[in-house]
């Protein structure tokens, strides 16, 4: 059970202390491919809700004005919120560049700022929910509005959780400059970009179109 002896053991597979090193048959590393595939399945989950959205809009209520009368969406505030979330894509990129070049301060600042921007977005979104004046029970529009934005909010929350882990580990001195040593920044970063892009689609579909 001593960690030191295990480290030696894995280097000499014939001692049967650990498995042989797997042959790497692709240039892409496992975690990155894993998160990309996960994002595909997440996109399909959004697809289910978008399918519902367009059904409710185009099939069930084709002639009505959309959003139906009495539903007013704060396009401007949500637009500012969109800008906040988009800017966090740049800060996470800054953090990743910092990690690549060994600039730990840039990495830490970038991660912290991304987290704060994401939390601000979530806070404004919740504030919007409180002041919207309709709930998920109010008609099909209320349901799908809260369904889509709520699903996205849940993804922001998960993204923030992943970023929290990255922040904690960055402040505690983890992550190196080698590609495999800062996957803990890169993988949540990829997910965060996905969350941002998905918000742009949700915003354009629900608020603008």
């Amino acid at each position: 059970m001593e960690s030191a002896s295990i480290a030696v053991g894995s280097a000499h597979a014939h001692e049967h202390h650990g498995p042989p090193e797997a042959h790497s048959s692709s240039k892409i590393d496992r975690q990155t491919l894993g998160i990309l595939l996960f994002i595909v399945s997440e996109a399909m989950l959004f697809g289910a809700f978008f399918a519902s959205y367009f059904f409710l809009r185009e099939v069930s209520n084709p002639t009505d004005v959309w959003p139906p009368d009495g539903f007013e969406l704060p396009k401007a505030i949500a637009g500012v919120n969109t800008a906040i979330l988009i800017s966090s894509s740049f800060t996470i990129h800054w953090a990743l560049e910092g990690a690549r070049k060994g600039n730990r301060e840039a990495m830490k600042m970038g991660l912290a700022m991304t987290w704060l921007l994401g939390a601000t977005f979530l806070f404004i979104q919740i504030n919007e929910y409180v002041h919207l004046g309709f709930s998920a029970r109010d008609g099909a529009f209320g349901s799908i509005f809260y369904g889509l934005t709520g699903l996205h909010g849940a993804h922001v929350f998960v993204g923030l959780l992943l970023l929290s882990f990255a922040n904690i580990r960055a402040w505690r001195g983890h992550f190196g400059t080698k590609a495999e040593d800062h996957l803990g920044v890169e993988v949540p970063g990829i997910y965060w970009h996905f969350v941002d892009v998905m918000w742009i689609i949700v915003y354009v579909t629900v608020y603008i179109l």
Partner: peptide, 21 residues
């Protein structure tokens, strides 16, 4: 559980959309 109207035709929901999804 929370009374949304995704599939409640009376409130503008769409029953067929369930089958499609």
């Amino acid at each position: 559980a929370i009374g949304t109207n995704f599939f409640q035709a009376a409130a503008g929901g769409d029953v067929i959309s369930y089958q499609h999804i």
